[in-house]
Design a protein around this nucleic acid. Sequence first.
DNA 1: ATCATCTTGACAATGATTCTCATTAAGATC
DNA 2: GATCTTAATGAGAATCATTGTCAAGATGAT
Lengths: 149, 149
Amino acid sequence: MSVTFRRPTRQRAAVEALLMNIGDFMSAQDLHARLRAQGQGVGLATVYRTLQAMADDGGVDMLRTSDGEAVYRRCSTGHHHHLVCRSCGRTVEVEGPAVESWTDKISSENGFSDVHHTLEIFGLCASCTPTDPAAPAADADPVEAPAKD
Amino acid sequence: MSVTFRRPTRQRAAVEALLMNIGDFMSAQDLHARLRAQGQGVGLATVYRTLQAMADDGGVDMLRTSDGEAVYRRCSTGHHHHLVCRSCGRTVEVEGPAVESWTDKISSENGFSDVHHTLEIFGLCASCTPTDPAAPAADADPVEAPAKD
DNA sequence: ATCATCTTGACAATGATTCTCATTAAGATC
DNA sequence: GATCTTAATGAGAATCATTGTCAAGATGAT
């Protein structure tokens, strides 16, 4: 409905392509660095603009890491939430009809209208769980806790 | 349990007092400005440090506005979520046992462990709903849309 | 009062995001 | 295909919240 027309450009295509390849959340800075590494030079400002436009148009979800950085990910349309591995960044889309109805109920009970909510779940995926025999596949870019110390 | 000891100082007391008076979410910058306006000079860095310490110790909740700014609020202990008016900032603490169990279920089903989640609901409270006969009480400091221009 | 330390504060440093504005490139027109 | 209108881009400056630095100040114990 309110999907403003966007001119197809090389830059936009490059951003979309990379988002499609990387299945997990990525920051604008990260995306910019990867494109540059690929030889696909795209201005940083353009990356930000493109990402925001895509998020507005839908097709891309944006959420904030614990330190406030915005990260983006290509997503199926429709309302859903995410289960994100804080170690390797692996993301699983999840739906919660019960949560949706709960928020609606809570909202109306308190006289709130025109509501929207944010819900993300962070944890360690099977591969990154210490007690798991499988070796931690923490080589992808983590969303929240980059390998420290 | 891991509540590190903190020396009682004038600055810490001032921050705590203001948080108690203002019942809604407030940014560190905002808090700093208010304290300064009250004549209670407290360094900006100190405000940040104090707020983070309080959030760590519990007793203060922190969440991020849509533009990534961290906002704090004195809160009852225990896990809960918030229903925040995006116009006047009024906040209601809500609990959702169903949501907690849902996230646990989803997490285990996907092999995730050590999870935690964030859930906030934003909307317009009764007083700020346009169709409501009551005049919008949007004079308190809004969490997301501060009076601009 | 004195000491060892935790805190504070002023300001520099970071780092993500936004703004500016001249240049480039789509899409429509002739 | 040349031309024109205008959105899109890019390089870098500008913002702005947040963090780091480190000397000076305050607190609790001695």
